[in-house]
């Protein structure tokens, strides 16, 4: 016979308040861990953004002590300013052409580096050469290209020697060419990031998909269009949206190469806003312009986040 000993349950304690306290403490613990980040985000992002938004609805901010509420007057001033419209148009051309060229160049070079036709050493050499523009800081890029593009610079010399042009071209000083030239320099400096990201994407495509396509009798173009592109689609979309956002914020390159000139032909939203703030001291109007840029960028960010969620 076996005896079954049942332990007495512990006497019931009045636990309810303690449990509540514990669960509150437990719920607060994650916020405790997050607090340094939260403080930094609030101090460095939330507060400045709120301040800029509030400046944009006032007049005489910063430079005078008694600023007054101005409603949407600053927004009206900015949106009806022909220079702003020109800057908006230039920025649109600059970011879309840059993004498309980044994508095409990046994909082309990535496919070349991923191809089985080149030896390992050749690939390594090309990899270093192709990534070089990405290693220079914007200031260095601006100085190098200003020197190269000078009317008496290397580029005109080479083109004249080859007989492609007769007289030296005024690349940055001509209002007709300046925007395309700064866009070209931006493309040159930014394609390696696309290339590296797309190369990583290409290397992640399973070989079996290409084998199956070969069995089905697909030619190289069909493999590219029906296997490579669909597989890279998420990377391409993410990179394209991010590139539009980053390029729209490009300031240093434009400022150091042309300053928005000649005759506003390279004026971007970033240089337009900077001039309003630090040259005209119109901080309220500059804030309104900055808020408009923020809203435009948020539209792009919305598409990026939605695309990331879908993944």
């Amino acid at each position: 016979m076996t005896s079954l000993t049942v332990e007495k349950p512990p006497p019931a304690e009045p636990e309810a308040p303690t449990r509540t306290k514990k669960s509150v403490a437990r719920r607060l613990i994650p916020f405790g861990y997050l607090s340094p980040t939260i403080v930094l985000i609030v101090v460095l992002m939330v507060v400045p953004i709120i301040m800029v938004i509030s400046y944009s609805f006032r007049d005489n901010v910063i430079v005078q002590e008694n600023s007054v509420f101005a409603g949407f007057a600053n927004y009206t001033d900015v949106l009806t300013d022909p220079d702003f419209v020109a800057a908006l148009k230039n920025t649109f051309i600059f970011i879309t052409v840059s993004m498309v060229a980044h994508l095409l160049l990046g994909l082309g070079f990535a496919m070349m580096l991923n191809s089985g036709m080149l030896s390992g050493v050749t690939k390594a050499i090309f990899r270093v050469v192709y990534v070089l523009p990405w290693l220079f800081t914007i200031a260095v890029i601006a100085v190098i290209w200003r020197l190269l593009l000078d009317p008496s610079g290397v580029i005109n010399y080479v083109l004249q020697t080859l007989g492609i042009i007769q007289d030296g071209v005024n690349w940055l000083g001509d209002p007709g060419s300046a925007l395309w030239v700064v866009t070209f320099v931006n493309i040159w400096s930014g394609y390696p990031f696309f290339m590296i990201s797309l190369l990583a994407g290409l290397q992640g495509i399973p070989g079996e998909l290409y084998e199956a396509a070969s069995v089905d009798g697909a030619n190289p173009w069909q493999k590219f269009w029906n296997v490579t592109i669909p597989q890279l689609r998420p990377v391409i979309i993410s990179m394209a949206v991010l590139d539009l956002i980053w390029t729209s914020q490009q300031f240093a390159l434009i400022w150091m190469m042309t300053g928005g000139g000649p005759l506003n032909s390279t004026e971007m939203l970033s240089t337009f806003t900077y001039k309003l703030a630090f040259s005209e001291y119109e901080f309220a109007t500059a804030s309104a312009s900055a808020v408009i840029v923020l809203l435009l960028t948020m539209i792009l960010a919305f598409f990026y986040v939605r695309q990331q969620r879908e993944r």
Binding site: G32, S35, P36, V39
Partner: peptide, 12 residues
């Protein structure tokens, strides 16, 4: 740990 993090935040 959480209290330490919060203290750092306050210091920041």
């Amino acid at each position: 740990g959480a209290l330490t993090a919060a203290t750092v935040a306050l210091a920041l």
